[in-house]
Design a binder for these strands. Structure first.
Lengths: 206, 206, 206, 206
DNA sequence: TATGAATGAGTCTTCATTCAT
DNA sequence: AATGAATGAAGACTCATTCAT
């Protein structure tokens, strides 16, 4: 490794780190104000630089959300895929998926909020966000086949409307991103456990 | 009733009707695109008039959402208050509240979506939307005391974290507004029944 | 005179009267807010009708000021012309002109204010107001020749810069319209007398 | 002085200079067209930039006039206060005040015109312009007490209505801003001298 | 005569983006 | 890497004007 190359790598790494910092800042602002209502200047203020300076790092506001969301989704689907590849029973799979979801929320809270709130708007605004719809679709397929398998295997009740159950679970899990705080009273895994208890057994006393 | 008075009433009623029409249109657009991302022109296009013409009927874009949301909230709280005043047991109260919530979704789908998505943004943007935060607060109080009572009365499980249960139910119920269609497969009351089954008994087979 | 004709005359007279009323109202609003800053709706509000209704009587906002100003100027110049035709000495002419000016202010306060404040703007906005510039020009000629004659005749001091004196008097007289009230402490003729004392003799004690 | 600091000062000074340039341009346009009738675009055109670019330097059209007027008034009152603090006799004070007024006109012609024409409108439009009314009030007090003192001291005639004299002088002096040109035939101090001759001694030949 | 609803051009303002330094 | 000044398109809102009733 030549010094030249090491230097280049150092600079590239520094640049990547700065990008990541700025994206984290941007994600927080997008999550709390909404993408459309967030100005580039607000992001820059939060990062302590001037509005125009962001354009040294990113092409556009759009490419910022894009990077935030695609990074998050890649990581999340990698985790899901590991679970799905493990060959567990329907109930165990559901539990593992829910646990992974809360871990995603733990690691990418802001990105999850943005994904929840802005997917429809972004997908309508530009083709570049088509992958958001793909993700939603894959999501639905994953859950529906999991639920159907669970009913077949006798793990889940057969008297419920499955599309309804799907939406119920989907919404339920992800919306926790709206209020979750990393330093809050409950850790992500604890929340997952409680959610699973509610979803599987209900809140009614026996 | 003199002709004069009938005439006056007639025009006042016509005016109110036109307002309601335009507000319904605006609510749909706000719900589907988000408040900040919606332009006044889009609302006007949807209503078949020009952008400036909306200002004959309304002071501002802000006052449109304001009227949409406050109308909805007034009606919803009136329904809740009727339930709460009925003196039912905790479980029956919960069922009735959920049923009323789905009826609200049925009657004010777009307003519910806006309430869900834009409350935080609007409240931050202007004091005039303070009532949205008040409503959220009342909501929380209502649910928390209902859940606490249910645990005391032995109707609900005692091993769950109540603030978590509160959020779980809140999110669960209202998010249905995101996908509910009046002419869909299931009627509002059917959806309520299924939701109650899931929330109370869980999705697990016995 | 046939009844038909009398009726027509009655209507025409009534119409003219209504126009005059509305113009008086409009003049007050223009004078107090400025022409550009006055909306047609404000005039209509002040007249107790709706904005669109003004267009039954007048072609446009512009034609309203036009009529206000030209009516006033015609009357004022008629009075000036009577004075100028009387063949008085320079000093007596000056006195009579000042007195007539204060009478104009008394009768057309609002129009005078508009004339003072808006002439330049209106003349720049449309050729139709060219007569305003003509009036200013005639004004200047009248005063300059009066002052020159006065100096020649030994009635006025010869050591002053006449264009300066002209502006001094012009401004002095007309600006009284800005504060004059018909029901105020001093009548128009008293004010004229005091103004003449100041202009002719100065405010210095002998 | 460190290079860093010099640099900061340099940019801050450059910024202030640009603001001053733009404000001078804006003042000219406001003075010639009237505030309400002036569009932001006209100001920008006159400055050779685009309409939106003005908002990099100023918050609003309103804040532009605000800065123009308050800068002018501060300077003018500082000059008046110096005169008033000098302990001169009434006549000498009046002369000094008039001279200072014409110097103000010389330095801030456009601002004076705006102050004359738009004070009432601006004060009615927003509380932020309350200081304009304060200035008018102080103005009146200053003149009235000066005139009263002059009459007591025997410097000014006692047979005139003082409020009338006050208005006469106020109007007289300031309206010169309407036609004064820096490169005109007469310098500001010459005009002051002539005005004082007229006001004090009158235009009548002895 | 007047109303009420709408038009459409124009205003102020915002904001993503560019670019010379 | 970042600044600061500017661009230019778009947005909310205003208002003179029109017209069917």
């Amino acid at each position: 490794m030549s010094p030249r190359r090491r230097d280049t790598e150092g600079t590239a790494a520094a640049r990547a780190e700065r990008r990541a910092e700025l994206l984290a800042t941007a994600a927080e602002v997008f999550a709390s104000q909404g993408y459309a209502a967030t100005t580039v200047r607000q992001i820059a203020d939060a990062a302590g630089i001037l509005g125009g300076s962001l354009y040294y790092h990113f092409d556009s506001k759009e490419s910022m959300v894009d990077e935030i969301l695609s990074t998050f989704l890649n990581e999340m689907w990698a985790a899901y895929d590991r679970v799905l590849a493990a060959g567990l029973g329907a109930r165990e799979t559901l539990e593992a998926i829910v646990v992974e979801s809360f871990r995603s929320i733990d690691r990418h809270r802001a990105a999850v909020v943005i994904y929840q709130n802005e997917s429809r708007y972004l997908a309508a605004a530009s083709e570049r966000f088509g992958y958001l719809l793909d993700s939603h679709r894959r999501f639905k397929e994953m859950w529906m086949s999991l639920l159907e398998r669970g009913v077949r295997e006798g793990a889940f009740r057969g008297d419920l409307d499955l599309p309804l159950v799907y939406r119920f679970i989907r919404d339920t899990v992800w919306l926790a991103a709206g209020w979750y705080r990393r330093d809050g009273r409950l850790a992500a895994d604890d929340i997952a456990k409680q959610y699973l208890a509610m979803v599987l057994e209900g809140i009614q006393a026996d």
